[in-house]
Computed example of a mutant assay.
Amino acid sequence: MARSNRDRTEATRAALIEAARALFVDRGYAETATPDVVAAAGVTRGALYHHFEDKKALFLAVVEREAKAVAEEIEAQAASEADARKALLLGAKGYFDAMQKKGRTRLLLLDAPAVLGPEAVTALDRRHAEASLRAGLSDLLRPLEGAEPLLDQLTALLSAAFDRAAIEIAEGGDRAAYEAAVVRLIDGLR
Rank of each mutant, 00 (worst) to 15 (best):
Asp26Pro: 01
Gly42Asp: 04
Tyr49Asp: 09
Arg27His: 10
Thr34Ile: 13
Tyr29Arg: 12
Ala22Trp: 00
Glu53Ser: 12
Asp54Gly: 05
Val38Phe: 05
Lys55Arg: 15
Lys56Ser: 11
Tyr49Gln: 11
Ala30Trp: 11
Leu16Tyr: 08
Asp26Leu: 06
Leu23Ala: 11
Val25Leu: 11
Ile17Pro: 05
Arg27Pro: 00
Ala22Phe: 00
Leu60Asp: 14
Leu23Gly: 01
Phe59Val: 01
Val25Met: 12
Ala40Asn: 07
Ala19Pro: 02
Asp54Lys: 05
Thr32Lys: 13
Asp54Ile: 08
Pro35Val: 07
Ile17Asp: 03
Arg21Pro: 08
Tyr29Lys: 09
Leu23Glu: 04
Ala39Trp: 02
Tyr49Glu: 09
Leu16Glu: 07
Phe52Ala: 07
Asp36Ala: 15
Thr34Lys: 01
Glu31Lys: 15
Phe59Met: 05
Val38His: 04
Glu18Asn: 13
Val62Phe: 01
His50Cys: 00
Asp36Thr: 08
Arg27Thr: 01
His51Glu: 10
Leu23Ser: 05
Thr44Ser: 15
Leu16Pro: 10
Glu31Ser: 14
Glu18Thr: 15
Asp26Gln: 14
Ala22Leu: 01
Ala19Val: 03
Gly28Gln: 13
Val37Ala: 01
Lys56Asp: 11
Ala20Glu: 01
Arg21Ile: 09
Ala39Pro: 02
Phe59Tyr: 13
Ala39Cys: 02
Leu58Gln: 11
Arg45Cys: 00
Val43Asn: 00
Phe59Asn: 11
Ala33Gly: 12
Asp54Arg: 07
Val43Ser: 00
Ala33Val: 10
Ala39Arg: 13
Leu16Gly: 04
His51Trp: 08
Arg21Ser: 14
Val25His: 11
Ala47Trp: 06
Leu60Cys: 06
Arg45Phe: 01
Ile17Ala: 03
Ala22His: 08
Ala33His: 14
Thr44Gly: 14
Ala39Ser: 12
Thr32Leu: 14
Ala47Ile: 04
Asp26Lys: 02
Glu31Pro: 03
Glu31Asp: 15
Thr34Gln: 10
Leu23Asp: 05
Arg45Trp: 03
Lys56Asn: 05
Ala47Cys: 10
Asp26Trp: 00
Val38Cys: 03
Lys55His: 08
Glu31Ala: 15
Val38Tyr: 05
Lys56Gly: 09
Arg27Leu: 10
Gly28Trp: 13
Tyr49His: 15
Asp26Arg: 07
Glu53Cys: 00
Pro35Gly: 10
Ala22Cys: 00
Thr34Arg: 04
Val38Ser: 03
Glu53Trp: 07
Phe59Asp: 09
Arg45Tyr: 07
Ala47Leu: 06
Val37Phe: 02
Leu60Met: 13
Ala33Lys: 14
Ala19Met: 03
Arg21Phe: 08
Thr44Val: 04
Gly28Thr: 06
His51Ala: 05
Ala47Tyr: 08
Val43Thr: 05
Ala30Lys: 14
Glu18Ala: 15
Ala41Gly: 00
Asp26Val: 01
Val43Lys: 00
Phe52Leu: 07
Ala57Glu: 12
Val43Gln: 00
Thr34Trp: 01
Leu23Arg: 12
Ala33Thr: 14
Tyr49Arg: 06
Ala61Arg: 13
Phe24Met: 11
Ala20Tyr: 06
